[in-house]
Design a protein around this nucleic acid. Structure first.
Length: 465
DNA sequence: TCCACTCACACTTTTGAATAGG
DNA sequence: ACCTATTCAAAAGTGTGAGTGG
């Protein structure tokens, strides 16, 4: 298990009041654990899919985490963004996901700000933190601040904790970034894997209507009873599912899973036993990538330990350029975003992810500029303008500590409400800061001194309700 | 023809206002 | 007048399946 911090240096001399209390920062060990990991793992074991729609769709399971190790009286801001897992587009073919080509250019970067932000550490630690209202969309012109993703692409959520008294001081603050491998998912506009559908129906209360045989069967029966073709289809589905389901409802082919709660538990136990054999449709691939390295983290069993903390320096930072990869701004060429890439080896499919030798707990002096690194495409077909391969970023395979810089989406006049508001007017058309938060604007002509100006670059777009 | 996507639908839970009771 | 509990309607969140368009 790695515990690497994603430390953001202050690049432009913040006012002392805005400086994080670095001692506490460095000495404290912030710990984040994923709530309901079992559920996540169940989904992950099959290959989690998340529906994305134009108006925005919540995640299920939704992200819920516990935090500890924060300074109770210090204020923190919590953010979530979505990071592409790799540089590929996928298709569902014959009961499994296959690579279908190169990934599409990254959509505008959006970051979800937890509505409680900023709040004291005691607040974050006293209860689990839910990102229930985070929504995903495939609408690149989305005006509601939802997180924009591409269908048939794989992502994972990334959680950022920033110590900051208010949203303004985010830009001076130190980030810590956490990811959980079991939260990775494929964005889809319609479910591909019936096993996932089944799991969602059985666990999501809103889908209860599809759960038992009663309503669903009736509804389907009503809809189909006059249509022989549909009848045939339906019975075919039953056959496919490998069960003589009397319900005629989309019985999952998920082996042995029948939706009954108690039964589900038993199944889960059984699954646990065989987890090593089939953990995830993706895991084999990952293992292949990671097995060469002898990192213990590559072992699924370690990876999914219940109290897992996966603080990760993203192996790639969302180095997103405006206009889908066209390099629009000076910042794109002077990255500095060298992410200290220390996601567990299990987590990255980027072959040459390196673990930073620079302990994140070792502070860089404030004001020290991070190494300037030009973004480079991921190896092979990976062509993510939005990503920076950490190892590529750091010469000599020594990823530098990431300068994970934030451009506040709020101007000086703008209250916190700007982040949490839902009025479309508050969301300017997506004109995304080139190289966004991976890049210190101070290097690229976005004067920090002028909040109003840099606020034009919504590095962290926001989508809170 | 295939496949990704959109939309209307029926069903559910959640939310918030109105009301009643202490 | 205030607070709490209950009720009810509207809003929002689900997956489904038909239809559409590239």
């Amino acid at each position: 298990m790695q515990s690497i911090r994603d430390l953001k240096a202050n690049f432009s001399g913040p006012p002392p009041s805005a400086m994080p209390s670095s001692d506490a920062y460095l000495q404290g060990s912030i710990r984040m654990t994923l709530e309901d990991p079992e559920l996540w793992r169940t989904f992950h074991g099959i290959g989690t899919e998340m529906i994305i729609t134009k108006p925005g769709r919540r995640m299920f399971p939704h992200c819920k985490v516990n935090l500890s190790g924060l300074i109770p009286c210090a204020k923190y801001i919590l953010l979530v963004d979505m990071v592409p897992e790799d540089g590929f587009r996928y298709k569902w073919n014959k009961e499994k996901w296959e690579v279908a080509g190169k990934a599409e250019p990254q959509p505008p970067c959006r970051t979800y700000l937890h509505p409680d932000s900023p709040a004291p550490g005691s607040h974050w630690m006293k209860q689990s933190i839910s990102f229930l209202k985070l929504k995903l969309t495939n609408n690149t012109l989305d005006q509601h601040g939802h997180i924009i993703l591409h269908s048939m692409h794989r992502y994972h959520p990334r959680f950022h904790i920033v110590q900051a008294d208010d949203l303004f001081s985010v830009r001076w603050s130190v980030f810590q970034t956490f990811t959980f491998p079991e939260t990775s998912f494929t964005a889809v506009t319609a479910y591909q894997n019936t096993k996932i559908t089944k799991l969602k129906i059985d666990h999501n209360p809103f889908a209860k209507g599809f759960r038992d045989e009663g309503t669903t069967k009736k509804r389907r029966a009503n809809k189909n009873q006059n249509d022989p073709d549909k009848k045939a289809k339906l019975s075919e589905m039953n056959r496919d599912s490998g069960e003589d389901s009397p319900t005629g409802f989309c019985r999952s082919s998920f082996e042995g899973y029948d939706g009954d709660e108690a039964e589900l538990r038993k199944r889960k136990e059984r699954e646990e036993e065989i987890k090593g054999e089939r953990y995830s449709p993706w895991s084999t691939e990952r293992e292949r990538n990671t097995r060469n390295g002898s990192s213990p983290a590559a072992e699924p069993r370690d990876v999914y330990s219940a109290e897992q903390m996966v603080p990760a320096l993203a192996s790639y930072q969302p180095y997103r350029f405006q206009e889908y990869g066209k390099s629009p701004s000076p910042s794109s060429s002077v990255g500095s975003s060298a992410s200290g890439s220390a996601r567990g080896s299990f987590e990255s499919r980027v072959p040459d992810v390196a673990v930073p030798d620079q302990d994140a707990s070792k502070p860089r002096p404030h004001g020290a500029a991070p190494p300037c690194v030009a973004p480079q495409p991921l190896p092979g077909s990976q062509d993510y303008p939005g990503l920076l391969n950490a190892s590529a970023a750091a010469p000599g395979g020594k990823p530098a500590v990431l300068g994970h810089h934030v451009y506040g989406p709020y101007g000086a006049e703008q209250p916190l409400g700007q982040w949490s508001g839902s009025a479309p007017a508050q969301y300017p058309p997506p004109h995304h800061l080139s190289a966004d938060y991976a890049t210190p604007a101070v290097h690229h002509g976005y004067p920090h001194g002028n909040v109003t100006e840099w606020s034009q670059y919504p590095l962290f777009s926001y989508s809170c309700w």
